[in-house]
């Protein structure tokens, strides 16, 4: 099980690197799904099976499906890849990458400077999580409900299409379509 942790971590890091370097949006999305699934494997190894299931169901299942759906709706084809070739010039990405690498080295130094214990992987099941979630964190659940309501309303408002008038006689005098 210990070796599985390192294999899954390597897959997660490699596929995340592939996500930010792909030119085709669909291959980036598929690599993102692989990255999320390997993170779910790590959660399972660390003894959090409930969160591992949520990662597969909600992240890889729902959020990524939204991304795939929008990418298919936009229907970006060959010219989008050509655009990516011009946008992804080494001159644009080399500076931010170096700065991110320096920041990463700093955070690695901070993490490894302190000696702290080991992960035993003893299981914390859905029962404990549910008791904590609906016990002392109930205010967080209510706030999350408000956030989701605001998200639904915002997505509905932004996604709502003004109805396009096909004939000029039917056109509203003051309202143009967007």
């Amino acid at each position: 099980m210990t070796i599985a942790f390192y294999i899954a971590s390597g897959i997660a890091v490699l596929s995340s690197l592939m996500v930010i370097s792909r030119k085709n949006a669909f291959s980036a999305l598929l690599y993102m799904i692989i990255s999320l699934l390997s993170v779910a494997v790590i959660f399972f190894i660390l003894g959090s099976p409930f969160v591992a299931a949520l990662e597969v169901i909600i992240y890889a299942g729902a959020i990524m499906v939204l991304f795939v759906f929008v990418t298919m709706m936009l229907n970006l084809g060959e010219e989008a890849e050509k655009q990516e070739n011009t946008w992804l010039h080494p001159r644009t990405w080399i500076g931010p990458s170096i700065l991110a690498i320096i920041l990463g080295i700093l955070s690695l130094m901070i993490i490894t400077s302190a000696q702290s214990g080991f992960l035993s992987g003893s299981e914390i099941g859905p029962k404990e999580v549910g008791i904590a979630l609906y016990g002392k964190y109930i205010i967080g659940v209510e706030l999350a409900a408000m956030l989701i309501t605001a998200g639904i309303l915002g997505a509905y408002h932004l996604g709502k299409r003004k109805n396009t008038v096909m004939h000029r006689y039917l056109q509203d005098t003051e309202g143009g379509n967007l």
């Binding site: 099980m1 210990t2 942790f5 390192y6 971590s9 997660a12 890091v13 995340s16 690197l17 996500v19 930010i20 990255s35 993170v39 790590i42 190894i45 660390l46 931010p96 990458s97 991110a100 690498i101 920041l103 990463g104 955070s107 690695l108 993490i111 490894t112 702290s116 214990g117 080991f118 992960l119 035993s120 992987g121």
Partner: peptide, 21 residues
């Protein structure tokens, strides 16, 4: 399992830095 805590945190920070980049 017997994994040092630092290794898992290193993976988390690597993923975060990849996302930031």
């Amino acid at each position: 399992i017997n994994i040092p805590l630092e290794h898992a945190l290193v993976v988390a920070s690597l993923l975060f830095m990849i996302g930031l980049a």
